[in-house]
Amino acid sequence: MTNVRYGFVIDLRKCIGCHTCSIACKRENAVPLGVWRSWVKQVEKGSYPYIRKSFLPILCNNCESPICVTVCPVKASYQRQDGLVLVDPHRCIGCRYCMAACPYDVRFINPITPIVQKCDWCVHRLDRGLKPACVEACPTNARYIGNTHDPQSEVFRLIQSNPVIVMKPEMNTRPMVYYINADQLTMDARGGALWKRVHE
């Protein structure tokens, strides 16, 4: 049994919201117009003149307990031993149940093929010992990937030495994308607007 468990760390202190990762992903994976495997959410906080922008790169969390794998009726969505969740393009029937069940809404129907696709952390590159296109392209080195079981790896060190959070931990999916310096308002689907309404 492999002792590799890939994890992704995004250091939001370094992210400048340039969208280079999104474009590199589009080019690497030939993602058609209108759909995204990975993108950067931009949030504006505060009020004039005290405004600042926050960025939240979003991609598939390749969860440890992926709901998409559980609900796929034909096992087209499956999980490798290293934790990566992949979609078998020859098996997917396009029922889109995985898209509806994913709490992070990171799957899409490729309008050309048409089957369900998602970010697979550039598995074709990882298997050849390369980093994913977004990690390679990030100009500020805000993105890291590596083996979370290996104490020598960069991601292990970053996860252990920083306050990291994951998206929607309450879903019990155990996401493997860790964010450094993310705040609740940026993570919230409505930028905290609802949170404010509930509690004000």
């Binding site: 796929c72 997917c92 029937i93 029922c95 089957i115």
Partner: peptide, 22 residues
């Protein structure tokens, strides 16, 4: 409703007992 209608037969050989669609 399936985007890959011709593959509906995959529902029979590729069974996932955890999925309600199965």
């Amino acid at each position: 409703d399936l985007t890959q209608m011709a593959r509906f037969w995959h529902l029979f050989p590729y069974i996932n007992l955890r999925s309600p669609i199965t």
